[in-house]
């Protein structure tokens, strides 16, 4: 009899713990879906919802504040999305806030991002319709990438033609780089410039020792020394 009561007790505790675990699990899942908190409803009209589904998150300032409750096609080009939002966040979402459809990471689920507008407006009421903006879709990005890739292909094609012309010695740059005669001429010119510069230096030295010009050079040297002294004083 005692053993039977003990067994009953053990069974009761075991079943109670399991049921409690189940209820706690259900509570956490329900809490995420705003089942046990005070909520209000808003909706937004979109042209394209990009695969958004009922149950996806609504995010505001990076925090999950609600979920998508219903999606309904109202005309051939518009879709109405109803959202259930946590009441606590109502004071932060103003009437000029905008809803856009985003993505949770690169491979994640679609979400609705509510972007706050400039301050000063009144907060949203229950069943209000929030302004929406069409988010940049992956297709748009792919179209832009294609245009860029086409341009890059055209540029590389032109570059290939230019490089070929250069290697064949055509045009100014081609001649400059590929023509050996021009290189020899340039080398000669540089040697001449070097020699000319050496001659000019000798002339200037001679002018410095000339009686007529010595005063001018001395004056110049004095001015230089004065400037040096001034700089030294400053330091």
């Amino acid at each position: 009899m005692k053993k039977s009561t003990g067994n009953k007790m053990k069974l009761g505790i075991f079943v109670s713990i399991s049921i409690t675990l189940f209820i706690v699990g259900i509570y956490f899942i329900g809490a995420r879906q705003q089942l046990f908190s005070s909520t209000f409803q808003i909706s937004g009209i979109f042209r394209d919802i990009s695969g958004l589904q009922v149950g996806n998150n609504v995010r505001f300032s990076g925090i999950n504040i609600g979920i998508i409750e219903n999606i309904e096609q109202i005309t051939d080009s518009t879709v109405k999305v109803d959202m259930v939002i946590n009441e606590d966040t109502r004071k932060f979402i103003k009437k000029n806030a905008k809803a856009i459809i985003g993505s949770d990471g690169l491979m994640g689920n679609k979400i609705i991002l509510i972007i706050p507008g400039p301050v000063g407006k009144k907060e949203l009421n229950n069943n209000d319709t929030i302004e929406t903006a069409q988010a940049v879709s992956m297709d748009d990005i792919l179209i832009k990438i294609k245009v860029t890739a086409d341009n890059a292909a055209s540029i590389t094609n032109d570059l290939a033609i230019i490089m070929q012309s250069i290697s064949e010695g055509k045009g100014t740059v081609g001649k400059l780089l590929m023509d050996s005669t021009l290189a020899h001429t340039l080398e000669g010119a540089i040697i001449n410039i070097k020699q000319g510069a050496g001659g000019f230096k000798s002339n200037m030295d001679a002018a410095g020792n000339n009686v007529l010009l010595r005063g001018f050079f001395k004056k110049k040297n004095k001015e230089k020394e004065k400037e040096k002294e001034k700089e030294a004083e400053k330091k």
Binding site: G25, F28, I29, G30, A31, R32, Q33, G55
Partner: peptide, 13 residues
């Protein structure tokens, strides 16, 4: 456990 319950729904349980 936040990450666990983030992805679970009634349709799973």
């Amino acid at each position: 456990f936040l990450q666990v319950f983030e992805k679970l729904s009634f349709a799973d349980v």
